[in-house]
Write a protein that binds this DNA or RNA. Sequence first.
DNA 1: AAGCATTGCAACCGCGGGAAA
DNA 2: ATTTCCCGCGGTTGCAATGCT
Length: 210
Amino acid sequence: MDKNPCNSQDAEVRKGPWTMEEDLILINYIADHGDGVWNSLAKAAGLKRTGKSCRLRWLNYLRPDVRRGNITPEEQLLIMELHAKWGNRWSKIAKHLPGRTDNEIKNYWRTRIQKHIKQAADQNFQGGVKAMEMMNNINPHEHQAASTSQVDSTMETYSPPYDHDHVVEAFHHGTNTTTALHYHHHHDSNVNENYWSMEDLWSMQLLNCD
DNA sequence: AAGCATTGCAACCGCGGGAAA
DNA sequence: ATTTCCCGCGGTTGCAATGCT
């Protein structure tokens, strides 16, 4: 649509899903020359893609150590703990889950965990009120595009209390059944303590599903 | 069986920060 | 010191697959 007709020879940049041929070109080029310097890599490899696109494809999909398949309950728990600590710092969280990409974790959070939180909160279960409180507790200090963009209003983004003023503790006591996530709000006037216990998580069936 | 709705994930976009020129 | 360029991050979108009526 915005193709420039003047210099069509180098202006054509491919977008959308990668073909097998493109994948092979990228894999082989990186095998020979290594990754990084993505813009020049894209040109040198003869790919009609932006460096950005090449980098994304490699890091999220083609990289040999990328781990695919179901997120394990342990990984899920770790994601929740780290998200409670750091919020939407997906790449930072991903560094603690070997083989998992920030994109995968982000997608997983949005499609699975966030949805379950919402669904569970909609039902009358024990922790629902607490979950809703937490979902509504949007931190005003952090960047939060979710609250400003056109995110579906029925599926508000849960924003954990990862303000510096908040202390988040995560415990591990051997098995996951005794693990607890504790969110402590100690300066919010309207919330004295928010505990999101493992019992709550289990009741949300977050850890039962594969 | 067909059409519509929902889900899940790959990929794109815009922006900020840092390095290089 | 300033500008330009590139990388990486987080948010968002597009679409194929799947489920539902």
